Computed example of a mutant assay.
Amino acid sequence: MSHGQPAGRHTHTLAGAAWWFLPLLGNDQVIGVVGLQENTQQRQLSAENRRLAEAICTDIAQAALRTTLVAELETARVSNETERLRSALLSSVSHDLRSPLAAMLGSAGSLISYSAAMSEEDRLSLLQTIQQEGERLDRYIQNLLDMTRLGHEGLTLHRSWIGVDELVGSATGRLRRYRPQVLVELQLDADLPALWVHPALVEQSLFNVLENAAKFSPAGERIQVFARQVDGHLQLDVQDRGPGIAEEERGRIFDMFYSIERGDCGKQGTGLGLTIAQGMIGAHGGSVSAFSGEGGQGTLIRLSIPLLEPDESRQAPDDGE
C-alpha cells in the first residue's frame, strides 16, 4: 500500500484476504486507505463495480485533500493574524506606554533636581503634566484590560437602571476632566426611558466614542451628542467636525488596532477605543456604526442600545418598603 497500489482481494498482493484495500491518493502521496469487505460468496467483483469503487475512492481522496488544504490555510491565516496583532500591539505599547512614562519621568526628574529654583507656576505645570500623563496611561491600560475581557473572558452584564441624562453626563464629565478645552453640546430628547444595562460598560463605550471624536475635532468646534428613542432602541449619536472618514474605511475603524490618518491629525491612538465600544454595546444586543456627519462634514458615530425590561426572575424581591 505504501506504493499507492490496491491490495487484498481481487489483487496479486494478499489475494486471499477477505478485504479489498484501495489507497486514497493526494498529491502523489497516500493520505488514507479504504477497505471494502465483500460478500464471501462472490468470487469476482464485476468490472463496472470495481471502476465505481475506484471512482468513489478518488472522490473521497480529493475531498479529504481539500479539507486538509482548507485547514492548513486557516491555520496559516490565524497565525498571520496573530502575528499582525502582536506586531500592532508591540508598536502601540512602544508609543502609548513609553510616551506618557517619558513625560512623567521627565517632569518628576525636573522637580527633584530644580524644584528650589522654580517658580510656583512652573512646579504646578510639571505636577499637572504628571497627573495628565498618568491619567492617559491609566486609560490606555484600561483599554488593554477591556480588550482582554472581550477577547478571552467575555463580559458578565450586571444590569441596573440608569437614566440617559446621568449616563451622558458621566461620560461627558470624564471627557472634560481629561480634555478641558473640548466643547460638547448635548441635545437629549425629553422623556427618554431609563436603560436596563450594565452602566459602567455603556458609559465606557460612550466615553471611548467621545474621546475619539475629541481627537479629530478642530480647536473651537463643538462635539454634538444627540439622544433619542427609535424603534425600541436608545440611539446615541456623537458627531464631530473633523476631516471625516472615507466610506470604504468606516467599517474598518472598529477593527482592533486599526488607525487611520484624518487630515492633518496624523495617526491617533491604537484603534482600541472603538473596538471596545462595539464589543461592549454588542454584549447588550446593540450596535455601533459610523456615518458621514451632517452636511458631509466630520463623522457621526451611532450607538444603538435596545430598551429592555429586566426579567421577572432577576428582579430583586420586594422588602415591603
Rank of each mutant, 00 (worst) to 15 (best):
2 S>A: 11
2 S>C: 05
3 H>M: 07
4 G>I: 09
8 G>Q: 06
8 G>S: 06
8 G>A: 11
13 T>W: 11
16 G>K: 07
17 A>N: 08
18 A>C: 06
20 W>C: 08
23 P>N: 10
23 P>A: 12
25 L>A: 04
28 D>R: 10
29 Q>H: 09
36 L>Y: 15
38 E>I: 12
43 R>D: 15
45 L>R: 12
45 L>W: 12
50 R>E: 11
52 L>T: 14
56 I>R: 09
61 A>R: 03
64 A>Y: 09
65 L>I: 02
70 V>L: 13
70 V>Y: 10
76 A>N: 02
76 A>E: 11
81 E>C: 01
82 T>M: 05
83 E>K: 04
91 S>I: 01
93 V>I: 09
93 V>R: 02
95 H>T: 14
95 H>K: 10
95 H>W: 06
95 H>C: 06
95 H>D: 04
96 D>F: 10
96 D>H: 14
97 L>W: 10
99 S>W: 13
107 S>M: 06
108 A>C: 01
112 I>H: 11
112 I>L: 15
117 A>G: 09
119 S>P: 05
119 S>Q: 14
120 E>G: 15
122 D>N: 06
123 R>N: 12
124 L>I: 05
126 L>P: 07
126 L>Q: 05
132 Q>E: 12
132 Q>D: 12
134 G>Y: 02
136 R>N: 15
143 N>M: 11
146 D>R: 13
150 L>G: 12
152 H>G: 02
154 G>E: 03
160 S>H: 13
161 W>T: 09
162 I>P: 00
163 G>N: 10
164 V>R: 00
168 V>S: 00
174 R>M: 10
179 R>T: 10
185 E>T: 11
186 L>I: 02
188 L>Q: 01
189 D>R: 04
192 L>E: 00
194 A>L: 06
197 V>G: 02
203 E>Q: 12
206 L>A: 00
211 E>L: 12
218 P>C: 05
220 G>D: 00
222 R>G: 06
223 I>D: 07
225 V>F: 09
228 R>G: 05
232 G>D: 00
233 H>E: 11
234 L>M: 03
243 P>A: 14
243 P>F: 03
245 I>W: 13
249 E>Y: 08
249 E>S: 08
251 G>Y: 00
252 R>I: 01
254 F>S: 01
255 D>I: 01
256 M>T: 13
259 S>E: 04
261 E>S: 13
261 E>D: 13
263 G>Y: 09
264 D>E: 15
265 C>H: 14
266 G>N: 03
267 K>W: 10
267 K>E: 13
268 Q>N: 11
269 G>C: 03
271 G>A: 07
275 T>G: 06
276 I>A: 02
277 A>D: 00
286 G>C: 08
286 G>A: 12
288 V>H: 00
288 V>L: 02
293 G>T: 05
296 G>T: 09
298 G>Y: 02
301 I>F: 03
302 R>E: 02
302 R>K: 05
307 L>N: 00
309 E>W: 06
309 E>V: 12
310 P>E: 04
312 E>T: 14
313 S>N: 12
317 P>Q: 04
319 D>K: 08
320 G>M: 14
320 G>F: 09
